[in-house]
Design a protein around this nucleic acid. Sequence first.
DNA 1: AGTTTTATTGATAATGATTATCAATATCAA
DNA 2: TTGATATTGATAATCATTATCAATAAAACT
Lengths: 138, 138
Amino acid sequence: MNEERDLFERYLRTKDLKMTSPRETVLQAFLATEGHLSAEDVFDAARRIDPGIGQATVFRTLKLLEGPRRYEHAYRHRHHDHLLCIRCGKLVEFFDPAIEKAQDRVFEKYGFKAIGHMMELKGLCAECTEAVRDSLAK
Amino acid sequence: MNEERDLFERYLRTKDLKMTSPRETVLQAFLATEGHLSAEDVFDAARRIDPGIGQATVFRTLKLLEGPRRYEHAYRHRHHDHLLCIRCGKLVEFFDPAIEKAQDRVFEKYGFKAIGHMMELKGLCAECTEAVRDSLAK
DNA sequence: AGTTTTATTGATAATGATTATCAATATCAA
DNA sequence: TTGATATTGATAATCATTATCAATAAAACT
């Protein structure tokens, strides 16, 4: 059922490490922390689950989590980018393989290991382009 | 002759700051440090030029050096995207024509008129990849 | 020039984030 | 269950960066 947990446990196994209750707490806290993760945020979230958990444990476990899946868990939702109309706010979600590929090349070029990305294109949608043109035509 | 220096001094002027000998030392050290520079590296290089220079001065000046780089980009309106290391915070600015082209196709496909975009790639830089691997090695 | 004002310096203290130490405890395999 | 080992939380230590501050240097005035 809990795929995240299984993945983590499998990873720990390969390192002769144990899946423990505090580690599970950190994992849950980590997954529950949407958006940008500071270790502090995860620590706070973990304390809400288990007030007795130690800060060092959170650091240690976060480090372990980098192993199988890295810090971000954006992978949980299917990845897509955004195309936003700045006039009416229309939002289009899209996925473009060519862009993904080009991004991979950038990661490689600079010696980075890819974790994820965020892209937002801003423009005027067709309707708004028309509307603007009309209003300019007076 | 030294364009970097001039650019830096011009930037300092706009902030009512002074071009001093220690600051020039740090600038030289900064420019001389090939590749991946930690503040520590720059400090070492600066000390080779002026053994009496203080560590705090290096940190302060490095912070100032961020200014003109940003300023230059903003002034020239040169577009770039960001590649960020989520572990150490290293930020690489890059421009990739293939990505720009692919984005244009997306705009067109959805009938949008392009205005701009924001893209941030997240990953682990080479040093951090290594560091993480070491820390996981048992 | 000299005087005043303000920015800058280096040393050091303080901070914030992360890591190491360690005795007590939990986990796993037999 | 036992025994071996991994893990824990508390705390100390470390690392990188900042803040403080008295002494100094530079610019801006006489």
